[in-house]
Computed example of a mutant assay.
Amino acid sequence: MRGEAKAIRLAHMIHAAAKIQAAGGVRTLSFDATAPLQLSNGENLAPLTIAFETYGALNLDRSNTVLVCHGLLHDQFVASPNPVTGRPAWWPRIVGPGRPIDTNRFFVVCANVLGGSMGTTGPASLASDHQPYGLRFPSITVADMVRAQAMLIEALGVETLFLVIGAGLGGMQALNWASAYPRRVFACATIASAARQPAQSIALSELGRQAIMADPDWRSGGYAAHGVRPSKGLAVARMAAQVASLSEAGVRTRVEAAARRERFRFDTDISGAGVGFVERFDANSYLYISRAADSFDLAADFGGRLANAFQGGATRHAVFAFSSDWRYPPEESRTLAHALIASGSDAAYVEIDSPEGHDAHLGEQPEFEAALTGFIDSAAAARQLSLLGGAS
Rank of each mutant, 00 (worst) to 15 (best):
Y133E: 08
V78Y: 08
I202L: 06
Q149N: 06
A46N: 05
D267W: 11
V109W: 03
S40N: 04
A300T: 09
Q200A: 13
Y55I: 01
L388E: 15
S80W: 05
P198D: 13
R327H: 03
M1A: 11
G98Q: 05
I8S: 05
R316N: 04
S245W: 03
R184W: 06
G312T: 14
Y349Q: 01
A292D: 06
A124N: 09
V228R: 12
S40P: 00
A124C: 12
D353I: 13
A127N: 12
T28G: 02
N308C: 02
A370P: 03
V68I: 15
A314I: 06
Y181A: 06
G166K: 05
V319H: 00
F277S: 08
Y181V: 03
A259H: 04
G389N: 08
A314T: 12
V142R: 02
A192P: 07
G3I: 00
A337E: 07
D282Y: 11
N59W: 01
V142D: 02
S323I: 07
A194I: 04
S193I: 05
K232I: 12
A292P: 10
G357M: 10
Q197N: 13
P138C: 07
V146L: 00
S324L: 09
G171S: 10
V278I: 14
E356H: 15
R105L: 01
L385K: 06
A342N: 14
I140M: 12
S201K: 02
M13P: 01
A379W: 01
A11Y: 04
A273V: 13
R9Y: 01
H361Q: 12
A381D: 14
Q384D: 11
T315G: 10
R93Q: 14
V66F: 00
R229K: 15
I212G: 08
P329T: 02
L387K: 12
T141L: 02
S271V: 14
A292E: 09
Q384I: 00
C110L: 02
Q76C: 14
A382K: 15
A370F: 07
V84M: 14
G274F: 12
I8M: 06
L60C: 00
T190D: 11
A348F: 02
E154A: 15
L287P: 08
P132A: 09
K232T: 13
L362K: 14
V66L: 03
I153A: 05
F137H: 07
H317R: 01
G115A: 05
F264S: 13
D267F: 12
L135F: 14
A307L: 05
N176C: 13
L388W: 04
E351C: 15
D346Y: 09
F296I: 10
N82A: 14
I101T: 01
S247Q: 06
H70P: 09
V26D: 02
A257C: 06
S245M: 14
G25Q: 03
G157S: 09
M1Q: 12
R238V: 12
A360S: 15
S205C: 13
F186M: 12
G363W: 08
S343R: 07
T160D: 11
G227M: 09
G304K: 03
G96W: 04
S378I: 08
S290D: 11
D325T: 08
R209I: 11
T315R: 10
V319T: 11
D217W: 04
V146Y: 10
